[in-house]
């Protein structure tokens, strides 16, 4: 920090605790003595020149972000090639950049590029990420950034892979929740212990926002799930025949399941899932009389 003028240093010290924030010129001006625009200009130039500040464009206006001292030191330790690569990766922000794009932009020899990336990655300046859209591409971004939803695929993805276990756990939880609100609580001593329905016109079935709220309040996951995400889950549960929409599609209700209510015909016969069903013929080598499946099926009496 000794390389900075006093004013620049004051501004830097004031803003660096909040270094993720984007500052506008006006906000910076607050830290300049007498709010002198000329001093501001000098200070900004100084900070930019030393690498303590970066300009970014937000819409039509320029905004600024401060860089931590460690980051500055880091950059300074880089070779010029590494710095070039780093800059490009940095500019790709949360989207990340494909190695092939990087190569054309930097115009570096592949071996050099690979070496640079290795060094940078080794020093934990950058990280390789997987993109849902392009699962085979090698994509880099700064180590401390979180990839965008387009890259990660949203809450259902972990390392660009759909997280089936996570989704299934959520599906089960949501189904249970909706089911618990779909039927009246059993009255103690109620006859037969059968589930009875709510009367027609009942409006207490949970809505999408009820369910979203419930997921938020439960400690199911730290991932922030929007209503759209919950709706995707509910859709799957509807496709699975576990829930249905009620009250004009605004609320959800569990479909009652009764064990063995429907007697399966075809699929409980030996033929229903027979691996040689298509080959079975009355006069063929595979027929009903010599069928071992029937034999076993009948043995289970």
């Amino acid at each position: 920090m000794s390389d900075l003028q006093a004013v620049a240093r004051t501004v830097y010290d004031a803003c660096i605790p909040n270094h993720q924030k984007l500052y506008t010129s006006n906000e910076l001006l607050a830290h300049i003595p007498k709010r002198d625009p000329q001093i501001l200009l000098e200070t900004v130039n100084e900070l930019l020149g030393r690498g303590y500040l970066k300009t970014l464009k937000q819409g039509d206006t320029f905004v600024y972000r401060f860089v931590t001292k460690e980051a500055v030191d880091r950059t300074r330790a880089l070779t010029s090639d590494e710095a070039l690569v780093f800059q490009h990766i940095e500019s790709s922000a949360r989207e990340g950049i494909w190695t092939k794009t990087l190569k054309t932009r930097t115009n570096l020899h592949p071996t050099v590029l690979t070496r640079c990336l290795k060094t940078l990655e080794h020093q934990r300046y950058i990280k390789a990420i997987k993109s849902v859209k392009y699962p085979t591409r090698k994509i880099y971004m700064l180590a401390d950034l979180t990839p965008t939803i387009e890259v990660t695929g949203g809450p259902w993805f972990t390392d660009a892979e759909l997280d089936a276990d996570f989704i299934n756990a959520l599906l089960v939880a949501v189904e249970r929740f909706v089911a618990s609100r779909s039927f009246p609580k059993q009255k103690p001593g109620n006859n037969l212990g059968t589930i009875i329905p709510f009367e027609a016109g009942y409006t207490g079935y949970p809505t999408l926002s009820d369910i979203t709220q419930w997921v938020k309040n439960s400690n199911l996951t730290e991932v922030d799930l929007s209503e759209a995400d919950i709706k995707a889950l509910l859709d799957v549960l509807i496709f699975d025949g576990k829930l249905e929409r009620v009250i004009g599609g605004t609320a959800f209700k569990a479909i009652r399941k009764i064990e063995g209510a429907v007697k399966q015909g075809f699929t409980e016969a030996p033929c229903g899932r027979c691996p040689v069903f298509d080959l079975c013929h009355e006069d063929g080598p595979i027929n009903a009389a010599n069928c071992v499946y029937f034999e076993k099926w009948l043995a289970e009496i």
Binding site: K263, T267, G272, C274, P275, V276, Y293
Partner: peptide
């Protein structure tokens, strides 16, 4: 094999009506 192994389904017991 003529009859490759597979899990043979189980008949749900017949109901009195059936």
């Amino acid at each position: 094999e003529q009859f490759p192994d597979y899990t043979i389904p189980f008949q749900d017991p017949l109901t009195p009506t059936e």
